[in-house]
């Protein structure tokens, strides 16, 4: 697995990535095409809860570590500018660009 931009965050990053990857594989199992919108939402809600329970703690620790590293490396301003120019808050924004 790839390293973090700050060596001290790499162990947290790798624990988080493993946790996410394991969960993600189960998340992508397709629901039956007959599933209704409310069944889908119910399923998403259950999986989100499972993700938060399993990976929430390590995610918070990793995020704290990496957000400090982003500041230390002087990346924050570049990121803020990029976010200002392309917020990319929903999927439509990637497709509309084309």
């Amino acid at each position: 697995m790839a390293h973090s931009l700050a060596a001290k965050c790499t162990p947290l990053k790798q624990s988080y990535d493993s946790c996410f990857n394991t969960w993600f594989e189960t998340y992508l199992k397709p629901l039956p095409s007959t599933a209704t919108q409310s069944e889908r939402e119910e399923w998403t809600k259950g999986k989100t809860k499972e993700y938060e329970e399993k990976c929430g703690k390590v995610w918070e620790a990793y995020r704290d570590c990496v957000s400090k590293a982003v500041k230390d490396k002087g990346l924050e301003q570049m990121l803020d500018e990029a976010r200002g120019e392309n917020p990319l808050v929903d999927v439509g924004s990637v497709d509309e660009e084309r």
Binding site: L5, R40, K45, T48, Y51
Partner: peptide, 17 residues
């Protein structure tokens, strides 16, 4: 290096950003 800065799951669509 690869780092995740933010991740969210849309409760209505199930889309992971």
């Amino acid at each position: 290096t690869v780092d995740v800065l933010d991740r969210s799951i849309d409760p209505n669509t199930g889309i992971i950003r």
